[in-house]
């Protein structure tokens, strides 16, 4: 027997098996969403950005999704595929103690799963970077993106959003002993932001600040703790998670921008957007939203009212 032969054959079989089963959508992903190279992001008008599709009729009973609808397809598949973050403390992060994904955004996904299946845990998570969120929706590798995603008109051109579920604003994280009180005080320093985020686009309005782009915003935290960058910019929700992890930091300034969050869904599934809007509306009304806010954001004062739904956009 030739000992070399059977190995090559066995090896080819095994490799063939594993390469054919992997999803073929990785290599070209980041280039399709390269941020515009002009000085300021193009302003696209689409009416009121947070306006979504109005729900029609009530929610179908869990487990009885209308046939032919996208919810029906999800139900037939047996699980909801959600694109989420694994390192945004409070919103979507992998709890190192349990290995499970947790956070405000993850709870939203559980709510959608509950509405489709009657079971909050029929979910397959795909961890995506900011820059991968829109491509993942476009190529159908995820059904929904719940990852601190800002609703704006530029993005409406490619994907659809649910009604707004959170109001955030972009701020800056600095060392606790920093004298800076607003972003303008940081001219001439190095500031880290995540590629594919609205945050890094907004930095173009501050040309005297050197932007340091990274793939994941938690990589900013590593660079910041190592002293490679002087500050980190991101949504206050995300930065709040960093302050929890590092007491030698603080968040400064008034918000540079308003960042309304919505759940991202492919434009080809307007009925799913309407379905999710009904789920969000129920959460606004029955107190679920306030419970989630209290659980994850732990406000010192009273829990605010949820952002009201705005409709009026037509698919």
């Amino acid at each position: 027997m030739r000992p070399g032969r059977w190995f090559v054959v066995a090896f080819a079989l095994v490799l063939g098996a594993c390469s054919s089963s992997s999803t073929p959508n990785s290599a070209s992903v980041p280039t399709t969403t390269a941020p515009p190279t002009t000085a300021a992001p193009p302003v696209v008008s689409c009416g009121e950005a947070v306006a979504s599709y109005a729900p029609t009729g009530g929610l179908p009973s869990p487990g009885a999704m209308p046939t032919g609808s996208f919810m029906g397809q999800i139900q037939a598949r047996g699980r909801l595929i959600a694109g989420v973050s694994a390192d945004t403390l409070l919103f979507g992060y992998r709890n190192p103690l349990t290995g499970n994904l947790e956070g405000f955004d993850i709870d939203l996904v559980h709510q959608v799963s509950q509405a489709i299946f009657g079971d909050p845990n029929r979910v397959e998570y795909k961890v995506v970077t900011y820059a991968q969120r829109i491509p993942a929706l476009l190529d159908g590798s995820v059904d929904i993106v719940a990852d601190v995603m800002t609703v704006n008109c530029t993005r409406w051109q490619q994907i659809a959003f649910s009604s707004q579920y959170f109001q955030a604003g972009q701020k800056v994280l600095v060392r606790r002993d920093s004298a800076a009180t607003r972003i303008e005080d940081l001219d001439g320093t190095r500031m880290c932001a995540a590629t594919g985020s609205t945050n890094i686009d907004n930095l173009k309005n501050y040309p005297k600040i050197t932007a340091v782009p990274v793939n994941d915003i938690s990589d900013c935290m590593v660079l910041f703790q190592q002293g490679t960058v002087d500050s980190v910019t991101g949504d206050d929700t995300v930065l709040q998670g960093f302050v929890v992890q590092d007491p030698y930091t603080k968040i400064i300034g008034p918000p540079i921008t308003s960042e309304p969050y919505g759940l991202g869904i492919a434009r080809t599934h307007p009925e799913f957007v309407q379905f999710v809007n009904s789920v969000l509306q129920r959460m606004r009304l029955d107190g679920t939203w306030k419970q989630m806010y209290a659980r994850w954001l732990q406000p010192t004062g009273p829990v605010p009212e949820p952002p009201a739904a705005v409709y009026g956009r037509n698919p």
């Binding site: 694994a86 390192d87 945004t88 403390l89 992060y93 992998r94 709890n95 190192p96 103690l97 994941d216 938690s218 990589d219 935290m221 590593v222 703790q225 960093f242 929890v244 992890q245 590092d246």
Partner: peptide, 20 residues
């Protein structure tokens, strides 16, 4: 060691240290 220390405190930034 930074990744471990963060991990032990339940901080997800540990994953970023591991990647680096």
């Amino acid at each position: 060691e930074s990744a471990r220390a963060n991990n032990r405190q339940g901080f997800p930034v540990g994953a970023a240290y591991l990647r680096q």
